[in-house]
Design a binder for these strands. Structure first.
Length: 202
DNA sequence: CGGATTTGACCTGCGC
DNA sequence: GCGCAGGTCAAATCCG
């Protein structure tokens, strides 16, 4: 499993605009001030090289991959990574065959499963999964025209942790989050960080 | 009353 | 081909 320790609030890398439009959009704006303890892990596709520190993310050293199955690559059954099962073990091949859907998973310490990340989510399903005693909840972004999905479940090993997997990219800004963007002069890449607006301020 | 949630049924894909 | 597991749908229900 490719796990990444993240010690800081979320920051996402965005490629320069005008290219890679399918792979850049709103990050899951996890916010350490919104009542949960963003802790620690971001899971990437096994095919990608995990950075050794969260700071590497900020330098653009790592791009969130169109994950094959990020969060549970290590513990899910084989059927969760079908692309590599029938043809080749090459992650590159899997990337070609699967739809290019951004998928990023977080593991965070939280009392509650519903984390206010600034977006509005509508629950559309709940399913118990074989590898975990805890049910998995399925959410969709309730914004019209936005098809981003999110899966939330408690860590089977440590129920105090919640694993959130975002799938897809928002085609809109969060109604409750201000985004700060900077562009790296050397690479031309954009970095976006989310910061939630305190209630009542505007 | 409208929107969100719940929950069982259904669909799909993969392994055996 | 069959069974299993994950994901989604949709009707019923709940709640503000």
């Amino acid at each position: 499993m490719a796990a990444l320790h993240a010690a800081a609030s979320y920051m996402a890398y965005f490629p320069p605009q005008g290219q890679g439009s399918t792979s850049s959009d709103d990050p899951p704006a996890a916010n350490p001030t919104s009542g949960f303890d963003l802790s620690d892990f971001i899971f990437f596709d096994e095919g990608s090289t995990p950075p050794t520190s969260f700071a590497q993310l900020g330098t653009g050293a790592i791009t969130p991959q169109p994950a094959t199955e990020s969060a549970y690559a290590g513990q899910s059954s084989g059927r969760s990574v079908p692309a590599s099962g029938s043809s080749t073990t090459s992650g590159i091949r899997a990337e070609v065959e699967r739809p290019r859907t951004e998928r990023i998973a977080f593991r965070m310490k939280s009392e509650v499963e519903i984390v206010d990340d600034g977006f509005r989510w509508r629950k559309y399903g709940k399913k118990s999964v074989k590898n975990s005693p805890n049910p998995r909840n399925y959410y969709r972004c309730s914004t019209e025209g936005c098809s981003v999905k999110k899966r939330v479940e408690r860590d089977k090993d440590d129920p105090s942790y919640v694993i959130t997997t975002y799938e897809g990219v928002h085609n809109h800004m969060s109604p409750g989050v201000v985004y700060y963007t900077t562009q790296d002069a050397a690479s031309g890449r954009y970095f976006v960080a989310g910061c939630q607006i305190p209630p009542g301020s505007s």
